[in-house]
């Protein structure tokens, strides 16, 4: 498993058992995610759970949600009319 795939997993799953996350990515990664506020914790009936934080949820929706018509139009305008080159 890709060691840096943890962000994608968090964006996709949104919540789950902490022990599952530790099993997939290791204690250190989970602690780092908790410490940076990317995930939050709560006690649950099956054990400690993790949930995606507002910050991570915002980034997830910016990255993976469907583009609106206006966003597509603005993109087209900047790319084809204004010819803004954003290549790095």
């Amino acid at each position: 498993m890709d060691k840096d795939n943890f962000l994608r997993y968090i964006y996709d799953h949104k919540h789950g058992l902490r022990s599952d996350l530790v099993r997939l990515y290791g204690e250190r990664t989970v602690r780092q995610l908790e410490a940076t506020g990317f995930i939050v914790n709560a006690p649950g009936p099956k054990g400690v759970t993790w949930g995606i934080s507002n910050l991570a949820n915002d980034i997830a929706s910016l990255k993976y949600s469907r583009l609106s018509f206006m966003e597509r139009l603005t993109d087209w305008y900047y790319t084809h009319v204004l010819r803004v080159n954003t290549s790095v």
Binding site: I59, E71, T74, D75, T86
Partner: peptide, 19 residues
């Protein structure tokens, strides 16, 4: 940066950089 280079949504990726 990859998304901006390969024609991903510009405004959204700039918002990610902001956050």
């Amino acid at each position: 940066l990859d998304a901006l280079s390969t024609g991903g949504n510009k405004q959204r990726n700039l918002n990610i950089l902001d956050r």
